[in-house]
Amino acid sequence: MDIANYSTYTLQNFLDDDDFLRFVISPSQKDVNFWQSVTAVYPTQKENIEEASKIILAYRKQDVFTNEANQQKVWDRIEATLQKQGAAKQTVFQLNRFLRVAASILLVSSIGIAYWMVQYNSKTEISTAFGELRTVTLPDNSVVVLNGNSKLSYSGNWDKNSREVWISGEGFFKVNHLNKDPRHIKTTERFIVHCNDVNIEVLGTSFNVRNRHNKTNVGLVTGKIRLEYLDQKSNNNRAIIMKPGDYVEYAQKHVVAQTKLAVPAKLTEWTNHELLFNNSTLAQIAEVMADDYGYHVDFANPQLANLKIEGEISVSNIGELIETITTTLPVKITQTDKNITITSINP
């Protein structure tokens, strides 16, 4: 600390000076004497020095949260945790070999039994037949509309854990929003949908999941969801945040397509017993007929599967669908029960 240094100091320089900062925050007698002599030698600096200390002091006059009331409580918790840890260690060391083996067998088998109980005893499973739509109300009052030939299951205690469901087939989810403070999300406020290698994590939204032939399509209607999937290339879990109208197609362990839907609400038209297709090929139509309604579709000539119906089809049942196909495309459809054969009109 050399007094001469301070002759040309600006207000900024003072604020930036470590020695000055220490003098303002916790002055020693030596500091006080030193800065008094600075003002004595350079009286013009008095204003800067006063101004700079005012700024620092005003900033420092801020609210302090000491949480003193809970200091003992938190300490008691720390002691309790350490005691538990210590106790656990001691018991293990005191056990002789036989007891240790016996204990581990007991432990493994009881974990097994517990797992079995959780997995099988409290699991609820709902499945739909071909062509059947069913609306399921979950324990938290969220609603799932299940398409035909689909399965939904859930288990566990939703009062304490995340809400988790497993789905195969197709379902439209309207998830009840429980979270009130987005900065603090409790586990019970999360809703997770599992299908194949994809997990969909949501708070409260509506979205459509279609999971057939190891392909998973997710379309979001409202809200925001987090899609977590296993990426084959990196063998890591990756995540996508989806916004309304986003549509993600996942298959063979990677994201095949990510598109934006013009009218997201169309995702849900099947829930009104409507069959909706847009610029679809006969192969795609046949897949839905097979997956959702249990039809078996044969093409007399495999190339027929590539025929495409331009534009949108919206029909309410398979009969109308067949009629639409035969009127728009040069094909003939013969049907015996659920077996359908599509042949070309001009051979």
């Binding site: 000491t66 003193e68 809970n70 200091q71 603090h184």
Partner: peptide, 20 residues
């Protein structure tokens, strides 16, 4: 250090449970 740590933690969250 308990009090200072709580004060610092409080700048990041007002959720005392998280700090504790």
């Amino acid at each position: 250090h308990f009090k200072a740590l709580n004060n610092y933690g409080y700048k990041f969250t007002r959720d005392v449970n998280i700090i504790e």
